[in-house]
């Protein structure tokens, strides 16, 4: 065990999985010599050579599309999509092809493909880099979507994703790359997909989030505790598969739920969680389920992004109101 940042945990995982299995290859924009714009692949090309860590021509469609082909040929590609915002350029390959290959070939072709991508806001990136677009992909049957919030989970879940015979979209919180730091085993390990993580136990309300928002919500829960509100914080980690039992158990206990997402309001993954809670916990609920999100507008430029992305104050105030009004 040792303290690692999220980016260090991801890099260590990639190195160990590549050492363990020569079929694992990394492809993407600037992943070789530079080691990726966030250095997730730093040193890998020097260790494994240019045939296993490949700088690609700048075209997300062919990066993902050829990744499908590499996988069908017998390799286990880990693709770095430089920013999730540029998944749009490959959406035909992702949505129509990656997610459905097994189904369309009636089981003949497996797709052991991982697409890693930084996403989310809060770090003043240029335009079109920061949207939290997870809902496009959770609405894509056939694709697993995970979004860890800790370095420990990033390492364990990435290893699991690489071992998986299903395609996995592995969303990494841009904001957490260097800010998030926790204890991570030095040796290889796997964390199963589809189990949420209870970040904090509580009795008054369940706060549900994923990726960078989990970290923020956990800090908000600290302040809520000072105000006498005991919040349970669930870090979903995995959006598909979703831990319905874990969510249900918590909300049955607390009787209140708030879902916090960075993405805009309408049609986000929060809506899916809310529907799930409603289906499973309706008779346990003491209050309407709260949704804390960005507004239904495009992700803005840096000077106003703090007004856009939900923050600790919003969570504290809105959750306080929810609990007090239903007390």
């Amino acid at each position: 065990m040792s303290d690692k940042t999220m980016i260090e945990a991801i890099r260590e995982c990639l190195r160990q999985e590549m050492e363990a299995d020569s079929r694992v290859v990394v492809i993407g924009e600037d992943v070789g010599r530079l080691g990726g714009v966030f250095r997730a692949t730093d040193g890998l090309q020097a260790q494994f050579g240019k045939n296993r860590v490949v700088d690609m021509p700048l075209a997300e469609g062919v990066i993902i599309g050829s990744g499908i082909g590499l996988a069908m040929s017998g390799l286990r590609p880990v693709i770095e999509l430089q920013f999730l915002g540029f998944g749009h350029q490959a959406f035909h390959q992702l949505g129509q092809q990656v997610a459905r290959l097994r189904f369309r070939s009636q089981g003949r072709h497996s797709l052991p493909l991982v697409i890693r991508s930084p996403y989310g806001g809060g770090v003043r990136t240029p335009e079109l880099h920061s949207d939290a677009f997870e809902a496009f992909y959770t609405h894509t049957p056939g694709l697993k979507v995970v979004a860890p919030a800790s370095a420990h989970d990033a390492k364990g879940m990435l290893a699991e994703a690489i071992a998986s015979d299903d395609p996995v979209l592995f969303l990494e919180p841009l904001k957490g790359y260097r800010l998030v730091k926790d204890d991570v085993p030095d040796e290889r390990f796997r964390t199963p997909l589809g189990k949420l993580r209870v970040m904090r136990e509580g009795t008054d309300v369940t706060l549900i989030a994923w990726s960078a928002a989990s970290v923020m919500v956990n800090q908000a829960a600290e302040i809520l505790a000072e105000r006498g509100i005991s919040a349970e914080v669930l870090d979903l980690r995995s959006l598909n598969p979703l831990d319905v039992d874990g969510i249900t158990a918590s909300v049955e206990k607390t009787g209140r739920a708030a879902v916090i997402q960075e993405a805009s309001f309408t049609g986000g993954f929060a809506s899916e969680i809310i529907a799930t809670v409603q289906e499973h916990c309706f008779y346990n609920l003491q209050a309407p389920i709260l949704r804390i999100t960005a507004p239904d507008t495009p992700y803005p430029l840096g000077a106003v992004e703090d007004l856009y992305v939900p923050d600790i104050d919003r969570v504290v105030n809105e959750v306080t109101a929810l609990v007090q009004e239903s007390a």
Binding site: F265, T266, D296, T297, P300, V304, L307, Y308
Partner: peptide, 18 residues
């Protein structure tokens, strides 16, 4: 800019929800 900057110029005819 204030929070209006988030909402300005998103639609010609903004839906009521927005």
């Amino acid at each position: 800019p204030t929070s209006d900057a988030l909402f300005d110029h998103v639609y010609a005819d903004p839906p009521a929800l927005i």
